[in-house]
């Protein structure tokens, strides 16, 4: 068997596919934006040459599909050229969303771990709670998001927390499922060993169950952090929020600012990638501390 090579097995195929997608995107941009250019030309009573047509489709104010470089220019414009505190800065909006995401993720992860500990140690909780934990996820919580926010606003809880609660609801589920699996992952033989040491339940938990659940925990945390970002973004949609990536999406769709929508989308994607990467790094750091060899 050949050794894995970074260039041949990772970079080359991925960059090929990405380049192909970008090419498709440019072609699609030309085709989707062309009707508008033809209309303008027809209204002006002129024929438009193909070369002009292609060039114009790349530089429309409100294109049906903006060309990649337009989106990148918009991202550059709204991140680097604006003060961070400005309402026009994408960094500002991303920070609003990020803070809700992190708060919700934190609460969700803590809640998930607590529930999992309860489920593993108490049979009644296991039997009664577990089916509902699963059923809770078949409810499209994102659909309830507007109402939760309106209700919480009415009670006087405004700002970060309502959005964070939606993230919490979404992110606790993968953590519960993963942690229950992880805390139960020690084998009988290991549990028996703890038993022969006369270990108390707390000792068994901290010295055996908790360490052996770490890989499961971090795998679910990766899912949880990604999904809690989705929760925060959707939480900003329906209330007519003034700030945040979700608000940028909504404002963009109201005013037909497609470039703005795509820029917000890319920002959200970058945010998700960074968050998942940070959790991944923490994962490998913890595993290394625990003595695992890669």
């Amino acid at each position: 068997m050949r050794a894995e090579s970074l260039l041949r097995d990772k970079l080359l195929p991925i960059s090929t596919v990405v380049l192909f997608l970008i090419a498709v995107w440019y072609v699609a941009a030309v085709f989707l934006n062309a009707p508008f250019e033809r209309d303008t030309a027809a209204r002006a009573g002129t024929e438009i040459a193909i070369s002009d047509l292609v060039r114009n489709t790349m530089a429309q104010e409100r294109p049906v599909l903006p060309a990649p470089h337009q989106v990148i220019a918009e991202i550059w414009d709204t991140t680097a050229n604006k003060a961070i505190t400005s309402k026009r800065s994408l960094v500002y909006h991303a920070w609003i969303t990020l803070s809700a995401t992190l708060l919700g993720f934190g609460i969700g992860a803590a809640l998930g771990i607590l529930l999992a500990v309860g489920i593993v140690h108490n049979r009644a909780m296991d039997r009664s709670l577990m089916p509902w934990v699963i059923a809770s996820q078949t409810i499209p919580i994102l659909a309830i998001a507007p109402m939760i926010i309106v209700v919480l606003n009415a009670v006087g809880i405004a700002g970060l927390l309502p959005k964070a609660l939606i993230s919490t609801y979404l992110s606790f589920f993968p953590v519960v499922v993963g942690m229950v699996k992880g805390l139960r992952s020690p084998e009988t033989i290991q549990l028996d060993l703890m038993h022969t040491y006369n270990a108390s339940q707390a000792q068994t938990f901290w010295k055996l169950r908790w360490p052996s659940s770490m890989p499961y925990l971090f795998t679910s945390l990766k899912v949880a952090v990604a999904i809690s970002l989705v929760g925060a973004i959707v939480g900003e949609l329906p209330t007519g929020a003034v700030a945040g990536l979700g608000a940028r999406l909504l404002a963009g769709s109201y005013y037909g600012q497609t470039v703005q929508i795509w820029a917000a989308l890319f920002m959200a994607a970058a945010l998700a990638a960074v968050l998942v990467m940070i959790v991944g790094l923490a994962h490998s750091a913890v595993l290394r501390r625990m003595g695992a060899r890669p």
Partner: peptide
């Protein structure tokens, strides 16, 4: 496969729901 799988995994983590307005 090597090109599409990492991308697919990446996209699964993205807030895809954002394409809704588009």
């Amino acid at each position: 496969q090597k090109g599409l799988l990492p991308l697919g995994n990446f996209v699964s983590a993205l807030p895809v729901i954002g394409v809704a307005p588009i």
